[in-house]
């Protein structure tokens, strides 16, 4: 009797119970996976939203100005007129060329200094120093990377600007250029100097990673051929690390283009067009990079047309930086493929 009872009743219950709990845990698992996936997907959607929102807000300017947005430069005046225009007669036409030139000149100038200096420092860190000096250099690089841009701006303002105006400017020069712009130390050059210090730690960090990743066997092969240690570094190690170093350079370029605060503090805050005709005064021109323009004119953002103008600065920044981000990977893998590394 007891045996029948057990077989008929208990066994099926146990069976069905495990089945139910198994299903439940599978369900939990699935739900959990969906939750994780949707969070990950939000991140992917955000970038689309950024593009959409910024393009939408900037659209009136592009519609009104067409290609003139990137081919003409009369930004300061246009902003002034737009500011005083009545609300129902907004002026939507803007030309951002001088801002684009301001962004490119400061970023390229900074790269011109920071890339050789950064790679050089990386070589010293990886190959030429040891012990305490190496640790100091590494710590200094990390700290430089962590110092907020507003502090770079502040130090630039209090150190670099007076230096430029004391050493490079005089009254004659200032009077001579008064018809174009005011020479007072706030300049492209100040922007380049401050920006160099800001992006050099990036170049160093990525170059250090790239150089450390070069296998020892290349160094041994080169040394065994009677090539000196220094020439081994120059001709074998750095070329082998080229892809990683290039990635760092592109990353630094993006950082330079996008820097807003520090440049708005030192680069001059007025959208002049630097001209090579001015000789070395080219570098002393006060310029207004795209990113700094958004900060500088943000007080007037309540005017719809100015808001749209600042968003069109954002569009150009976004397009440049997205292009740089995508090209990082493409360039990196193209170089590695050419070298035969993968």
């Amino acid at each position: 009797m007891a045996k029948i009872f057990f077989e008929d009743v208990v066994k099926p219950t146990v069976f069905s119970k495990t089945k139910i709990s198994f299903n439940l845990s599978a369900l939990y698992d699935k739900l959990w996976e969906y939750a994780i996936f949707s969070l990950a997907a939000t991140g992917a959607i955000i970038i689309v939203l950024i593009f959409v929102f910024i393009f939408m807000k900037a659209w009136p300017v592009f519609q009104a100005s067409g290609l003139k947005v990137i081919t003409t430069s009369n930004f300061e005046e246009q902003i002034r007129h737009a500011y005083f225009a009545p609300l129902d007669e907004q002026l939507w036409e803007f030309g951002l060329l001088s801002l684009i030139v301001g962004s490119l000149t400061t970023a390229l100038g900074a790269l011109f200094i920071a890339v050789p200096a950064g790679v050089g420092t990386a070589v010293i860190i990886c190959e030429m120093s040891s012990g305490l000096l190496k640790r100091f250099l590494e710590a200094a690089t990390r700290l430089l990377a962590a110092i907020p841009s507003v502090i770079y701006g502040l130090v630039g303002l209090m150190v670099v600007i007076p230096l430029i105006s004391d050493r490079l400017l005089n009254v004659e020069l200032q009077i001579k250029y008064l018809e174009y712009f005011q020479l007072n130390g706030y300049s492209m050059l100040a922007g380049i100097i401050v920006l160099s210090f800001m992006i050099v730690p990036l170049v160093i960090a990525l170059s250090v990673d790239a150089i450390n990743a070069v296998p020892r066997k290349y160094r041994e092969a080169s040394l065994a051929l009677g090539i000196t240690k220094w020439r081994t570094i120059i001709k074998v190690v750095i070329p082998a690390a080229k892809s990683g170093i290039l990635a760092g350079v592109i990353l630094a370029a993006g950082r330079g283009i996008g820097e807003a605060i520090a440049l708005s503090m030192v680069s001059g805050a007025s959208a002049n067009m630097p001209s090579l005709r001015h000789g070395f005064v080219f570098f002393l021109t006060p310029v207004l990079p795209l990113a700094s323009a958004i900060i500088n004119k943000s007080q007037a953002i309540s005017v719809p047309s100015i808001e749209a103008a600042l968003f069109s600065c954002g569009v150009i920044l976004l397009v440049i930086c997205a292009f740089l981000s995508i090209s990082t990977r493409i360039v990196e893998s193209a170089v590695r493929r050419r070298q035969g590394l993968d």
Binding site: G43, I46, I47, I50, I54, L251, G254, I257, G258, E259, A260, A291, I294, I295, G314, L317, L318, C321, A322, L324, S325, I326, T328, R329
Partner: peptide
């Protein structure tokens, strides 16, 4: 990747 390259001002 692209998000990491977007400037903070944007």
């Amino acid at each position: 990747d692209v998000l990491s390259g977007v400037p903070t001002i944007v």
